[in-house]
Nucleic acid binder design. Structure first.
Lengths: 376, 376
DNA sequence: GTGAAAGCGCTAACAA
DNA sequence: TTGTTAGCGCTTTCAC
């Protein structure tokens, strides 16, 4: 093994060598604008113009430059560009629980919309939603020189301080309360909850129970409020709410409790997973769905269509939420006119097999027979 | 409605305004290294040294600089740094279906591990896994000047071309086949499938059916191969495989088919969702779990613990996969010694309530009684 | 231990 | 239409 073919992975400690310019060719820093200029026989400026699609370049020159670019495999250096322009063409996303269905979908939409607009997405996952961690993430993002930030809140901060993000960086907040100081984008939680509750009311149910999400969650709160309001507007009193933590398991526990009430005929669960848990409990207790008890969820998971029975639920358009956040943010960044303070994404009702009119007492027998006939 | 409060959806065509420089104060380019230098009464280099934690600065000078930094709210400009060093301290992630449980978890781990190491994560979601889209994403990432790339493959490319990513950018591939040309990190699919199959065999089942994932999926293929091998090693013949598409619905359909076979006593499903669907089918067909049929899943979803019955499954450590990918990538970037070509993350068996010894015929009564006693 | 000079790749502004 | 000049904020020599 001679010196020539020595291991290229220059081991450390060779500081004696460090003076020597050596072979260490800086991991192929591709061709620069100057190289292209030379190759095409023009100035760097002209290359820059072509690179940026400016029009004031003669067709023939432009072609020459384009050819040279292709030949050399030129790609503009983003760092240099950013250094000049102060814009990184990148947006940051601060997110708590990455591992939830809705967040995933939203993130997917954000990343897609952003990259379509030529922006990259930098992700900062945060473990606990405290003021400190959020501010920290925000600071890190500023260091990264992002042009804007999307924050997915989901829940009140644990330490319950009102966080105030610096106002000098465009931002959009998802799943929060309005009046936060930043534009907000969110599913129309109130509408969805109203749909769900009204659907059960329309079927003839006299009492609609609610399995709520955690009280710290913004969306859970909004859903619960809307459920209550809908009942009140119908002249009904809202029964006490049982709160889960979004998990199937908590839905199961609550389902066990509710399922023991003989008068139970209708449940609106704040998400599909808790609805699933509740359904399991009802199955175990021998209460048929939807003959004995109707249940509506919220989210419309991919799986909900093949629950047993397929779940009637409220569809959330997470993609729209993500897309609109980026639209809003880009408007702020571009400084294009004023920006919506609150953007609301409508939900839709998906009626499947977990809801039906209540049995006997509340309804004429004729109806019950008809339902049975339809199923046969 | 006067002009001032006109619809914020700024209609196009307002190009007349674009000339006006207006108040747009270029989002506060914070203080530069020079400003800090001036404030501290030192040169910019000294500030740079302090900023980078070099030691050859006198304590008092250092403190003066630090103070000036804090005072001015200085934060280094990443673009300038990147321009100089050629390193962006950022890694790119190419990912197909964002909306799968495992991918989310993995992404979460990647983002966490990366940011812990001072790297940011740039996400590029790709719709269809074709050679074109992958190459495109890769190119975009290079333009972004990322220092390395993680590709989460999941499936053979649709056009089945062997993609060859340029070799000049460090990369790690997750969920692929080895020998791809890049280091690979993945769950030990074979081990997991063997655990699952052997578990059923150990319980006394003579025939273990398999609900496979899509044939294009690497992991599905690995699981199926391992299941087959395990059976063969036990001297048993593998029954025909029914392939789903990972969804609950496909599991349901296959469950309906399998459930009609009287001799069915044991199923190994390639993921938890298909197992869930199959369980629904079995419930509907009146076959009890685990008394009549045992079933094992793969993944260990959060919800699996509260399925009905709670699902016995193979736990995948997605966090480890993400973390190790970053470790590997960082090693490549840093050029620190050699790098593992294949990193395998072990699985673990989670025994819950969906598996038991087969009934009567296959086993001596004594055993059945003992199992029953244990359950009581 | 500290500072001065040069230049990374690009583009805005001006000059030709 | 094209080229020249200067400088974005930082770090890497090298000199003191």
């Amino acid at each position: 093994m001679d010196q020539e073919s020595a291991n290229p992975k220059a081991p450390a400690g060779a500081s004696k060598e460090s003076r020597k310019p050596a072979a260490r060719k800086r991991a192929s820093r591709g061709p620069s604008i100057g190289d292209v200029a030379k190759a095409a026989g023009v100035s760097a400026q002209t290359v820059s113009r072509v690179s940026n699609g400016l029009t004031n370049v003669e067709e023939s020159t432009k072609n020459r430059v384009l050819e040279a670019m292709k030949e050399l495999g030129y790609r503009p250096n983003r760092a240099a560009r950013a250094l000049k322009s102060g814009q990184f063409k990148s947006i940051g996303v601060i997110m708590f629980t990455l591992s939830s269905f809705g967040n995933m979908r939203t993130l997917d939409a954000i990343a897609t919309a952003a990259s379509r607009a030529g922006y990259s997405v930098t992700l900062i996952p945060v473990q606990d939603p405290t003021t400190g961690t959020v501010s920290g993430a925000y600071e890190r993002l500023r260091e990264q020189q992002v042009d804007g930030v999307v924050v997915i809140f989901e829940a009140h901060l644990l330490d319950d301080t009102d966080i105030s993000l610096p106002q000098d960086l465009p931002a959009v907040v998802i799943d929060s309360n309005p009046g936060f100081g930043y534009p907000m984008v969110d599913t129309d939680q109130a509408q969805g909850a109203r749909f769900a509750t009204q659907h059960l009311l329309d079927l003839g149910h006299q009492k609609v129970w609610h399995i709520g999400g955690p009280t710290t969650s913004f969306s859970a709160t909004h859903r619960e409020e809307s459920w209550r309001r809908t009942l009140e507007e119908a002249g009904l009193e809202a029964p006490p709410v049982l709160h889960g933590d979004w998990s199937t398991e908590s839905g199961y526990q609550i389902g066990l409790e509710l399922g023991r009430k003989p008068e139970l005929t209708a449940i609106f669960a704040a998400n599909d997973q808790m609805a699933l848990g509740a359904m399991r409990a009802l199955h175990e207790l021998g209460r048929r769905i939807p003959e004995d008890v109707s249940i509506v969820g919220f989210d419309d998971l991919d799986e909900s269509t093949s629950f047993w029975p397929p779940l009637t639920t409220i569809h959330q358009d997470f993609y729209a939420v993500g897309r609109l956040s980026i639209e809003n943010l880009l408007q702020q960044i571009g400084g294009t006119g004023s920006v919506n303070d609150v953007t609301t994404v409508p939900t839709s009702m998906v009626v499947r097999k977990s809801t039906a009119a209540p049995a006997v007492s509340a309804r004429p027998t004729a109806r019950k027979k008809r339902v049975a006939a339809e199923k046969g």
